[in-house]
Simulated scan of single mutants.
Amino acid sequence: MENWDHFLLPYNQAVDELKVKLRGMRKQYQNQNQRPPIEFVTGRVKPVDSIKEKMTRRHVTEERLEQDMQDIAGLRIMCQFVEDIYQVVDLLRKRSDLTILEERDYIHNEKPSGYRSYHIVIEYPVQMVTGEKKILAEIQVRTLAMNFWATIEHSLNYKYQGEFPEELSARLQRAAEAAFKLDTEMSEIREEIEEAQHLFSYGKRPEPQQPNKRDES
């Protein structure tokens, strides 16, 4: 690859555009006084060193890089509840400005490590001065608890290069189950949480309960 900056330009543009669009979805819900299923959105273009390392590990040639590496452009959508994840996926399926090529549900089909997330590979058209260029991008949709676990696991994976000590691996699996249990518990009290958040967001306080006359006597 002679010029990585030139090669990655459309990927940077795609990430910037998609962040604006996905955050716009959240804003639309807020403007309608509805709780958005999207908590926040982040995005990045994979660093060149990471691309090179993955090319070597996955035996990807330069000629096949655009087709075989799906996560050069990556977006991450964070949600409060597991149910929000599937609502966001449905919203993405209905969009006409991107094409979904592949979906992988690692939430109810978690990886052996305990990793949970919903992965979507999309084809996204970027308008360049030379014309339209379609690129692949990966969108990961997960809860805040899933993201916390995945961030820690990613850091440890970098340290151990995927070869975790057996005890550490077992601890990570238990932590993943604990994180998913937290998500499950929060889903069960979702109505209470949503009502409280609505009152907090709009500065409203619940009406105080009137004392029962029988209690006063």
Results as ranks from 00 to 15, higher is better:
Phe148Arg: 06
Phe148Thr: 15
Trp149Val: 13
Trp149Gln: 02
Ala150Lys: 11
Ala150Thr: 10
Ala150Cys: 13
Thr151Gly: 09
Thr151Glu: 07
Thr151Ser: 08
Thr151Phe: 10
Thr151Asp: 14
Ile152Pro: 01
Ile152Met: 05
Ile152Gly: 03
Ile152Leu: 12
Ile152Lys: 05
Glu153Val: 06
His154Ser: 08
His154Pro: 05
Ser155Pro: 04
Leu156Thr: 00
Asn157Asp: 05
Asn157Lys: 08
Asn157Met: 05
Tyr158Leu: 09
Tyr158Gln: 09
Lys159Asp: 05
Lys159His: 10
Lys159Ala: 10
Tyr160Phe: 15
Gln161Cys: 02
Gln161Lys: 14
Gly162Gln: 13
Gly162Tyr: 10
Gly162Leu: 15
Gly162Ile: 05
Glu163Tyr: 07
Pro165Gly: 12
Glu166Ile: 12
Glu166Tyr: 12
Glu166Thr: 12
Glu166Ser: 09
Glu167Lys: 15
Glu167Ala: 05
Ser169Asp: 05
Ser169His: 13
Ser169Gly: 15
Ala170Asn: 15
Arg171Cys: 03
Arg171Glu: 15
Leu172Trp: 07
Leu172Thr: 00
Leu172Met: 13
Leu172Tyr: 09
Leu172Val: 15
Leu172Ile: 13
Gln173Lys: 10
Arg174Gln: 08
Ala176Met: 05
Glu177Ser: 14
Glu177Gly: 00
Glu177Arg: 15
Ala178Trp: 00
Ala178Asp: 03
Ala178Leu: 04
Ala178Pro: 01
Ala179Pro: 09
Ala179Phe: 10
Ala179His: 11
Ala179Asp: 01
Phe180Ala: 07
Phe180Thr: 04
Phe180Asn: 04
Lys181Met: 08
Lys181Arg: 13
Lys181Ile: 10
Leu182Ala: 00
Leu182Gln: 12
Asp183Lys: 08
Asp183Ser: 03
Asp183Leu: 01
Asp183His: 08
Thr184Pro: 05
Thr184Trp: 01
Thr184Val: 01
Glu185Lys: 02
Glu185Met: 03
Glu185His: 05
Met186Tyr: 01
Met186Glu: 02
Ser187Phe: 03
Ser187Trp: 02
Glu188Cys: 00
Glu188Tyr: 04
Ile189His: 06
Arg190Gln: 10
Glu192His: 03
Glu192Gly: 07
Glu192Tyr: 02
Glu192Val: 13
Glu192Asp: 11
Ile193Gly: 00
Ile193Arg: 04
Glu194Trp: 00
Glu194Met: 03
Glu194Tyr: 05
Glu194Thr: 04
Glu195His: 14
Ala196Pro: 00
Ala196Trp: 06
Ala196Phe: 07
Ala196Val: 13
Ala196Gly: 02
Gln197Thr: 04
Gln197Tyr: 12
Gln197Glu: 12
His198Arg: 15
His198Asp: 11
Leu199Met: 15
Leu199Arg: 11
Phe200Pro: 00
Ser201Lys: 09
Ser201Leu: 13
Tyr202Thr: 11
Gly203Ile: 14
Lys204Thr: 05
Arg205Trp: 12
Pro206Glu: 07
Pro206His: 11
Pro206Ile: 09
Pro206Asn: 09
Glu207Asp: 05
Glu207Phe: 03
Pro208Trp: 06
Pro208Glu: 02
Gln209Ile: 08
Pro211Leu: 04
Pro211Tyr: 03
Pro211Trp: 02
Asn212Val: 09
Asn212Gln: 10
Arg214Gly: 06
Arg214Cys: 03
Asp215Lys: 05
Asp215Arg: 11
Asp215Cys: 00
Glu216Ile: 13
Glu216Ser: 03
Glu216Lys: 11
